[in-house]
Design a protein around this nucleic acid. Sequence first.
DNA 1: CGATCCTTTGATGGAGTTCAACGCCGGTGG
DNA 2: CCACCGGCGTTGAACTCCATCAAAGGATCG
Lengths: 217, 217
Amino acid sequence: MTLAYPFDDARTSIQSQNLTEVMDRLGVRMTFAKDEEVYAQEEDADLVYRVVSGVVRTTRLLSDGRRQVGDFYQTGDLFGLEVGAQHRYSAEALCDCTIQVVKRSSLKAQADEGELDRAIWEATCRDLERAQDHVLLLGRKTAAEKVATFLMDLASRGEAEAIDLPMGRQDIADYLGLTIETVSRMLTQLQSSKVVEFASCRQFRVRKWEVLERLAA
Amino acid sequence: MTLAYPFDDARTSIQSQNLTEVMDRLGVRMTFAKDEEVYAQEEDADLVYRVVSGVVRTTRLLSDGRRQVGDFYQTGDLFGLEVGAQHRYSAEALCDCTIQVVKRSSLKAQADEGELDRAIWEATCRDLERAQDHVLLLGRKTAAEKVATFLMDLASRGEAEAIDLPMGRQDIADYLGLTIETVSRMLTQLQSSKVVEFASCRQFRVRKWEVLERLAA
DNA sequence: CGATCCTTTGATGGAGTTCAACGCCGGTGG
DNA sequence: CCACCGGCGTTGAACTCCATCAAAGGATCG
């Protein structure tokens, strides 16, 4: 992990223009290498994080090594809010990442408190909503439906035609509560039925939106 | 569903004494019969709810009828906060319930705003944490582990020796992403290994905490 | 005391896991 | 430049856990 002086953002999401400014002013910019840990499960949680570039995943381990991925955070997303006193999930860089980190306590002390509080509130609500969708997916969807839902979700976030999968099969599997083999089989299935088309194993485009939507249940 | 004038609470959780007062002053008390709907999935979400007595479950349906239970809310719990503009889960009375309902907008307009905002924030965080635990449970735990976790969770909430199961087997199954048959089998298993003991199918006590904890993974 | 609903138990089947081997690709070094 | 290597993804075969189907046992209500 390396620190850097807070330079201006190359990209900034529209709604959080001010937020970006304030966080840049108050916080520190850090870079993380692929698979490096941003914070640990059970670490104290006085910090707020914002993805400047790259992708972050949150994960949780069972004692015997089974792993669950909580969510993926992309450029502009706030994370690390899921808090009582301690983090329930650890956060790791999925690929090389730049992340803006701010102390909550220093946020509280600021004049811009309102703006930031609202941003944190909204990010928390988004997390909750996504967690609720995740619960439905894990509890009641079949493997095929899980994978279809996952691709749809990714595709509807990115606006481009060609969608990149920043994560590997193992991360997808651990997000969907499946094994890599099953994920792979379902992807093959979706390809052979021409619903999606893979340029490489890390990039695809949706061919039949209607079918994909129906398959996602 | 019936309305009632806001009388004083019989029971009030210690930390939210003021909250109770404020909600009672601003809101309406309603009663719901077993299985009656408190709010619907996709209904607009301008209200905050507090369980005065009884138990509420939140549920979500897939188009073909598969059902996922999001969570159970007991006396004193705030719910209905999981919001963008619309509810993602519907809420139903598990048994006959009394529920205090307050308009968010009227909360915002109040002087006690701070107190209430904090309570709403904390309830939302609790929801998020529980959802995250739920994700791990659904994604990576076996049937036996799910049921063990569920019983532990219930037992550690109630302070009494004998724990009541307010919900039926179907609700447990839909919470754990299982079928009633599997839930029943796992419960039987836990009984025959003397880990828990059922007085009736709605009441149990934990015999071997250590073992139950280990089984919960 | 019968009717209905909920729970338990049993037998069978299937979706997804596990185990194993192979293919593909990018990196590295001869 | 190509051969070798290691990591990642795919494919196949066997197995397992849980779902499904079916029926009986128990509780609650009129």
